[in-house]
């Protein structure tokens, strides 16, 4: 494809940690690059990066580019998009892949606009047609009720990949790659957006994203107070508590515990949905779970279409005996 070559992934590596999502991007890029017989570039921003750069090689990168500049130490949308655009031009990458994360989803449109190229966001798959050398990203539309596959041949492209859409490769420390420090000078006048401060809302217990079990409550739970029963269940199973959008909007769970298309993407071994109807937008965040278990008093609720186990009934009656029995079985 003429002037462009190679698949480039981008992410931040704050505190020198390669995020699980970055490893997924590398696995996706590796597959595409191997099909094309081209290289995987990994661009990482952050300050004082060292271990994460080596890790990027172990997880699939051929070239790791890093700009260790204080201005890129913390996320700033202007600084990051300016720097990334320059590096993508420099590497003449044919495809740039970012995660559908708060950073990736913010940077991808900025960079695609500057590059003047096409952009498909929030993809659950990126396929490649060897014969036509086309990229075929798949993006769910209408809240996930329909999936749309696009086709791009011979053009530069930016894609964001939904979290947990692909498994990372196994770490292989014998893999060889180049770590390439690059210099990016950004004129301060180009920075229009000022990041004043970051406020972390700590949630105690197991992190939702990594929890082996997630207990999610929906509008059917009815009140914040009643979420204590879900917490109790989650604790027994060493899991985390999540909420549907109404549960988060009503403040029954923190906003950061919302599961779904516009919340967290989880894929635990066990996803227990209680008083959740199973809208397509909610399922977008949990459909990768190994076993979905639903408690709902409406037998026609959509959640039962994707649940492996289901109880039809009022959760107030079902949950206490379920929790009690589990406690008994798990001692």
């Amino acid at each position: 494809m003429g002037a462009f070559s190679g698949i480039t992934v981008f992410d931040g590596a704050f505190e020198d940690i390669l995020a699980p999502g970055t490893k997924e991007l590398l696995a996706c890029a590796r597959k595409l690059a191997d099909n094309l017989d081209e290289k995987v570039n990994c661009i990482l921003f952050g300050e004082g990066l060292n271990e994460s750069l080596k890790e990027a090689v172990a997880f699939g990168a051929d070239n790791v580019l890093t700009a260790d500049t204080p201005i890129l130490g913390k996320y700033n949308p202007d600084a990051y998009s300016i720097a990334l655009e320059r590096l993508v031009r420099q590497t003449a990458s044919r495809c740039l892949i970012l995660g559908q994360t708060s950073i990736g989803a913010d940077i991808a449109p900025r960079v695609a606009f500057k590059l003047g190229c096409d952009l498909i966001t929030d993809c659950v798959e990126i396929n490649f047609n060897k014969e036509t050398e086309s990229f075929i990203p798949v993006h769910p539309i209408y809240g996930g009720k329909i999936y749309a596959a696009f086709n791009f041949t011979n053009q530069q492209l930016v894609i964001t990949l939904r979290q947990k859409s692909i498994d990372p490769l196994d770490r292989d420390d014998s893999r060889k790659g180049n770590i390439i420090p690059v210099k990016v000078d950004i004129e301060p006048a180009l920075i229009k957006i000022k990041v004043v401060k970051k406020i972390k809302e700590e949630i105690t217990g197991v992190r939702l994203e990594n929890a082996p079990v997630v207990v999610t409550g929906g509008r059917g739970i009815g009140s914040k107070d009643d979420f204590k029963y879900l917490k109790e269940l989650a604790e027994i199973l060493s899991g985390a508590v999540g909420g549907s959008r109404p549960a988060a909007d009503n403040g029954w769970v923190p906003a950061t515990s919302k599961v779904g298309l516009t919340g967290k993407i989880v894929a635990p071994k066990m996803y227990i949905a209680i008083g959740v109807s199973g809208s397509s937008q909610h399922l977008a965040g949990c459909i990768g779970s190994k076993n979905i278990i639903a408690i709902n008093n409406d037998p026609s609720a959509n959640i039962f279409k994707v649940a492996r186990y289901g109880v039809v009934g009022d959760w107030k009656e079902v949950l206490p005996s379920f929790t009690e029995k589990l406690r008994e079985l798990l001692v």
Binding site: I292, I293, A294, F304, K305, V306, A307, R308, Y309, G310, V311, V312, G313, D314, E317, V318, L319, P320, S321, F322, T323, E324, K325, L326, E328, L329
Partner: peptide
């Protein structure tokens, strides 16, 4: 997927049977 609906005489019993 095919849903295994837990059948029981009461919701309370269904909860225990699910476990």
């Amino acid at each position: 997927v095919e849903c295994n609906f837990i059948k029981a005489d009461s919701p309370k019993e269904a909860g225990a049977k699910l476990a």
